[in-house]
């Protein structure tokens, strides 16, 4: 199941990155969640942050050498029991295209599909929340139809509004607040994903599920 060795690299002298071997899968992500829980208990580790089939570990300073952490990660990867997170299902109504989806044309050009096909394929699956990241409350989702995958933009857009539904490579997501993004925005929704005054500031957690409902398509 996980005989392939994960790749561990350094992010400078404050963090390490473990990349799961093989194609992106929910199975591998469940292993990432389990490894994050375990690594969070190691004394050298400040924070274990799951990404898309990868895991970043920030380390307490000073750490004379990262070798011990790298070895532990490689030993723990095949040993952990994949974690099943059965969370809530949240439905988000989306307006596809138009002003709120300025890069729909780029996705159509890249995929060779028409608007209805892209919208249908984007709204069809239940998307598991793999990880939180990018900006406060933002959810990285798994399960997008590879047929609508579109490479990230050559240069990031400096200010994209909150609620933007975007595609970046093999992934899709919804921005939780205004900010820069390198993804292709195909639609928009309204939902509060983050409240810093709450003990659990994020609306969604890894293991929850997002369902996009087609509210409107602007051609």
């Amino acid at each position: 199941m996980s005989e392939a060795v994960p790749l561990v690299s350094l992010l400078g002298d404050t963090a390490l990155l473990l990349e799961a071997p093989g194609a992106t899968s929910l199975e591998a992500q469940r292993r990432i969640w389990a490894l994050a829980r375990e690594a969070q208990t190691w004394p050298e580790i400040a924070e274990a942050v799951p990404g898309m089939n990868n895991l970043m570990l920030t380390v307490h300073q000073p750490l004379p050498s990262p070798a011990g952490v790298i070895r532990r990660l490689q030993e723990a990867w095949p040993a952990v029991v994949p974690l099943a997170l059965a969370g809530r299902v949240v439905e988000l109504p989306v307006t596809y295209g138009g002003e709120g989806g300025p890069h729909m044309a780029d996705v159509l050009a890249h995929t060779g599909l028409d608007v209805d096909e892209v919208v249908a394929r984007h709204a069809a699956p239940d998307y598991p929340v793999y990880a939180i990241g990018s900006h406060p409350g933002y959810c990285y989702l798994g399960g997008m139809d590879p047929r609508i995958a579109t490479p990230r933009r050559h240069s990031p857009v400096l200010r994209l509004p909150g609620g933007s539904v975007s595609i970046g490579g093999q992934q899709t997501g919804v921005s939780a607040s205004d900010g820069p993004s390198g993804w292709n925005t195909i639609g928009s929704t309204t939902m509060c994903f983050f409240d810093p005054s709450l003990p659990q500031p994020c609306l969604l957690s890894p293991g929850d599920t997002i369902r996009f409902r087609v509210a409107r398509v602007i051609r």
Partner: peptide, 27 residues
């Protein structure tokens, strides 16, 4: 695939000109 980053990471977008992530960098 999207992954955790820290301030200091030097990313190279497709344009080929690097961007150094600074203190307000996304995680």
């Amino acid at each position: 695939r999207s992954h955790g980053i820290v301030p200091g990471v030097i990313q190279v977008p497709h344009g080929g000109q690097p961007i150094v992530q600074m203190r307000d960098a996304q995680p």
